[in-house]
Amino acid sequence: MTETENLALFLDKLIEKNCSFAVWSMPGSQTPEILITDKKDLIYPDQFNKLNGQEGFVFAPYQIHAETPLVLLKPGIVKKGFEEILQIDLNEIEHSQQRRPSETQRLIIEKEAYLSDVEKTITEIKTSKLSKVIVSRLIPQARKSESIGKLYLQLFQQTPNAFVYLVNLPKAGLWMGATPEVLLKSEGKTLETVSLAGTQTRRTDSDYSWHTKEIEEQAFVSRYLLDVFYHFNIHPYTTQGPETLESGKVAHLMTSFRFSTKKLAHKLGDFLAELHPTPAVCGYPKSKAAKFITKIEKHDRRYYTGYLGPWRMNDSISLFVNLRCMEIMPDQYILYSGGGITARSVPEEEWEETNKKAGTLLSAIEAVQNT
């Protein structure tokens, strides 16, 4: 067997044992990393800013609730690379009896209902102080007898420019995704966050042109980040972009912001709490958009549009917004997808955008199911 096949089998056995673990790869990396931890080393901070002084792998929801807690996996077994991971002795890892989260049916809305929600959102934007709102939906896909380990590695191979992950946690469930969006990342003595919004189908010639709607949508996010910088007295900072970022089946507009880590010394958790959720996943102005989302969306976003990644492990931070993600249920996959609605939105086009975004995961599922 190849090392890829062996790793797929290894991940399947971890899931079978119901272990608490996270496996991931960084954008542009061909090296998977894993953290396996015991239930006593799972921490559930009740506020986002309580990550101050902690380290481990973070799996954060859109909003903290009893059913969707903020989870920190403290470092237990931590390995990097196929060879190191495959040297882990599975016999030394105990089967966990921890309960999985509620597996009640997730709310699926049909096309006409989604179009109606988008219409209502556009009307609200045109008649209020709202500028942008993200409206999401759930997309079900049948699960057969395919290996989840193979599915993860298929996604890992086909989306090299994304943060690709598989997480299994007792209170959160089994999740997989390939997200392109950095929330907060460190590199030496520099921190980086990005403004990412606007979507179009990926082109083979990389010759992109962007319309006013996408440019405005991305500008709202950039404006918000600068407001947060002002609040934390972050200056000077450097910017790069807007530029095109290709990921999976789509491309986005992105601007990077970099600044010194000294600016946040002991306030990283507070900064993160202020940053999340950004207008890229909520809307602008953020507080008004968040309130409107509670009215327009009938489903619970759970960990979709939350964030995840290594947090201060080896003095490094690599947090990503949880986009292009799915919850893995016993008989189906629940894909989460959304679109940024502005006054210029066209409902039918927004529906198609959610389908395009789901294409990254759907193509991986189809590839594994058809082998």
Rank of each mutant, 00 (worst) to 15 (best):
N52C: 10
Q54N: 13
G56Y: 06
G56Q: 06
F57P: 04
F59Y: 06
F59A: 08
P61G: 10
P61D: 08
Q63K: 09
I64R: 02
H65N: 08
H65L: 10
A66Y: 04
A66W: 02
L70Y: 00
L70A: 07
V71D: 03
L72S: 12
L73P: 05
P75C: 13
G76Q: 11
G76P: 10
I77M: 11
K80N: 14
G81M: 06
E84W: 07
E84Y: 06
I85K: 04
I85W: 10
I85Y: 04
L86G: 10
Q87E: 15
Q87K: 10
I88R: 01
D89G: 09
L90W: 09
L90D: 14
N91E: 15
E92D: 13
E92R: 06
E94C: 09
E94H: 13
H95M: 13
Q98D: 11
Q98W: 01
R99I: 05
R99F: 04
R99Y: 03
P101K: 01
S102L: 13
Q105N: 12
I108K: 09
E112S: 12
A113K: 11
L115H: 08
S116N: 15
D117N: 14
E119R: 14
E119K: 15
E119F: 01
K120W: 09
I122G: 05
I122V: 13
T123M: 10
K126W: 06
T127S: 12
T127A: 02
S128Y: 13
K129D: 15
S131H: 07
S136R: 00
S136W: 04
L138E: 07
I139R: 04
I139D: 09
P140N: 12
P140I: 11
Q141G: 05
Q141E: 12
K144I: 08
S145W: 10
S145G: 15
S145D: 14
S145V: 11
S147W: 01
S147M: 10
S147K: 02
I148H: 04
I148K: 03
G149N: 05
K150G: 03
Q158D: 11
T159H: 11
N161L: 11
N161W: 10
F163A: 08
N168F: 07
K171G: 03
G173R: 02
L174H: 03
L174C: 01
M176F: 12
G177N: 01
G177C: 05
